[in-house]
Design a protein around this nucleic acid. Structure first.
Lengths: 179, 179
DNA sequence: CGAATATTTCTGTCTTTACAGAAATATAGA
DNA sequence: TCTATATTTCTGTAAAGACAGAAATATTCG
């Protein structure tokens, strides 16, 4: 890590810590940070040297990043080694991460909540009335979030960003309209 | 856990697994799930029995949930024991979670990115030009997200939900407007 | 104040995850 | 095909996190 400029070290370390708070392996996040700020694709050995982690660790972490779809393999002419580069566009990056998290976490939760709602609906025990209502409201919320995601994901980046920028004005006008 | 109806068991177990994927302790998430679907506040001993975890574990997990602000202590007349209840409104629940995550994760990242941007700005080494640009675009993105959060958080729940519901129409109209 | 009960903190164990180094496998060019 | 190089998988160890049970502390009521 000593070879890297100080600001890069700070960024990579912070990104690694952030990762752990979001259930992402520290090394995985650090490698991503390194690739993200790099102006050219790196091969595994370079990543080892820069971050001071074992070759195997880098190999597995890179596979993980490729599974997430935020790092790609590229080949350089006259070089047999795999080189790796991160998605460079920030919005695209988070769009992919959001899509992946939805697929892995929101969607299975929807399935589970629907199954639970079925189970509780079948028993129809009055003692479960409150729990039933709670699960249903939770399900509604996740469906709302899921639908919103789908809508936003269909939009081109520029429109989506614009919508985010104008979030308050839009929501305010809706609020006024509803009164 | 055997005392609980099957759907409740399934929900609690799933919620626990979800938690781990988001960097939240499994037991913490399970206790929250239990309190969320419960129609009355529970005391620590009841939580132990229902989930089959140690008293100390429950104690620490409850403290964690209180730190997040999604579980509150209540006292029942004629009972010395602390009783605990979860925020019951789903939107309010996720509003609080979002606020807390922003405070713990987005805000420190903003601070860090600004510091990095400063550091790289000071050196002004042409070799760092690309990294500088990357960090700046990342910073812009986080500032956008942060601002959006602040705007949305100021809105009453109903308006916010309405804005989410109408997300696609709004964004589409912006998109058309921009062309 | 003292006993009973409730709660937190401490300590050690167990489980899981992270990770290095070695071994095995795969790949490309000679 | 053989050799050099790249990559992945395997294996053991180390570190971190989760958690139970015990001990300590605090609280309430008689």
């Amino acid at each position: 890590m000593k070879d890297l400029p100080l600001f890069a070290q700070h960024f990579i370390l912070h990104w690694g810590e952030m990762g752990t708070k979001w259930g992402i392996n520290r090394t995985v996040a650090q490698i991503h940070a390194l690739l993200f700020i790099s102006d050219h694709p790196l091969h595994a050995e370079e990543i080892c040297d820069q971050l001071g982690v074992a070759r195997s660790n880098v190999s597995n972490s890179l596979k993980e990043l490729q599974n997430w779809g935020i790092v790609k393999v590229v080949h350089l002419p006259g070089d047999r080694r795999d080189h790796f580069e991160s998605i460079q566009d920030v919005y695209e990056l988070f769009r992919i991460i959001a899509a992946e998290r939805k697929k892995r976490e929101i969607d299975p939760t929807l399935v589970r909540l629907r199954a639970c709602a079925n189970e509780v609906g079948a028993t129809d025990n009055p003692a479960d009335a409150h729990a039933k209502e709670k699960l249903e409201s939770l399900l509604s919320f996740f469906e709302l979030v899921s639908d919103f995601y789908t809508k936003m994901d269909r939009l081109p980046t520029k429109s989506a960003i614009q919508a985010i920028r104008m979030g308050d004005k839009i929501a305010k006008s809706i609020g006024a309209f509803m009164k």
